[in-house]
């Protein structure tokens, strides 16, 4: 692994830096395990892994306060782990079991936690953008000083409802951070083949929404940008756009033929830009942690992920009666 200079000097404590390392590693190991369970046929349907993009959610979670909300699209496992949702519940949802966060009824793309203010997990590209603005609308209406992180990809950034939302969010000064996770490929279509502008964040200018590009492979840069965006929203100045340039190492979903980019391109990113290696180097070179400290973290993460995998295999399938629950929030209507 080659070394690189950090764009940012760490302005966080050693403990915080170690926590970022741990959280990013948890996501990576969790996703690797999910990929493995998929290969064994234990996870079905679509499964979109977050490997490579870990610094985005970990950096932004570091900028969030208690009660701030988050909502994202279908590449959502990382967001759930980063906001503290139980890895067992996430993995068991992937295997479609009773112990899953949605009791097996949501799947990879549809998990929620009102306790952790995580509002999904949405399978329709772009649809979560107005939903996130709606959460921010509620916060503004209720005057509770909270901010909503609304994540979407470079692909979703071409959906019409995103711009309808930009317009209303700016018009009504909604406290929402629009986080464009630009991993450069909308499924298999490179950004330059689908998107008229190289810098997507500039599209906010048309609506008077400030924005900036951020190095998404540098968790400290992401956190700094997140702090700035959150401060803007909390000051009542309306929405803010962060276009976080990141990279996904794995395929779009599990069934990705990987014909649209070269193996060398992926390898180069992994070797030169990996976000976890970056923090590892910062920790070691700054003498904030020893190799042994990091090994201990690796071991802890491995145990958490293995426990989650075991739980997700042992948890039973949902009871057949679950088919008919949770359709309505009150009693099931007669005859319908």
């Amino acid at each position: 692994m080659s070394t690189r200079k950090s764009a940012k000097k760490p302005n966080v404590s050693a403990e915080e830096l170690k926590a970022y390392y741990r959280d990013m590693l948890l996501i990576r190991r969790f996703e690797e395990k999910a990929g493995q369970l998929y290969g064994m046929g234990l996870i079905g349907g679509f499964c979109h892994l977050y490997i490579g993009q870990e610094a985005v959610v970990v950096g932004l979670e570091a900028a969030a306060e208690e009660g701030d909300k988050r909502i994202t699209t279908y590449r959502d496992h990382g967001h759930m782990l980063a906001c503290g949702m139980d890895p067992k519940g996430v993995m068991a949802e992937l295997t479609g079991r009773e112990g899953g966060l949605s009791r097996g009824k949501g799947g990879s793309m549809h998990m929620f936690s009102t306790e952790k203010d995580f509002y999904g997990g949405h399978g329709i590209v772009g649809a979560n953008v107005p939903l996130g603005a709606g959460l921010a609308f509620a916060d503004k209406y209720l005057e509770n000083d909270r901010v909503t992180f609304t994540y979407f990809g470079d692909g979703a950034a071409n959906q019409g409802q995103v711009y309808e939302t930009f317009n209303m969010a700016a018009l009504w000064s909604l406290p929402v951070v629009f986080v464009i996770e630009n991993n450069q490929y909308a499924m298999g279509t490179a950004q330059k083949r689908s998107t008229s502008t190289p810098d997507i964040y500039t599209r906010g200018e048309a609506f008077g929404i400030p924005g900036e590009a951020v190095d998404g492979m540098d968790v400290l840069a992401v956190k700094d940008a997140g702090d700035k965006a959150v401060a803007h929203c909390r000051a009542g100045k309306g929405p803010y756009i962060l276009e976080i340039k990141t990279y996904r190492y794995r395929g779009h979903s599990m069934s990705d033929p990987a014909k649209y980019r070269t193996r060398e391109e992926v390898q180069k990113m992994r070797e030169e830009k990996d976000a976890i290696e970056h923090v590892r180097e910062l920790l070691l070179s700054g003498k904030h942690a020893t190799e042994d400290d990091l090994k201990a973290i690796d071991k802890e993460i491995k145990a958490i992920v293995n426990d989650a995998a075991e739980f997700s295999k042992d948890s039973p399938e949902p009871d057949a009666a679950e088919l008919w629950t949770d359709i309505y929030a009150d009693v099931a209507p007669q005859n319908a």
Partner: peptide, 21 residues
């Protein structure tokens, strides 16, 4: 009053319903 953007304001409405309104 909303702008003429049904898709967008319907989504904002649903999000607001999740946010306690």
């Amino acid at each position: 009053d909303t702008p003429i953007t049904e898709h967008g304001f319907a989504g904002i409405g649903v999000g607001a319903s999740w946010g306690g309104l």
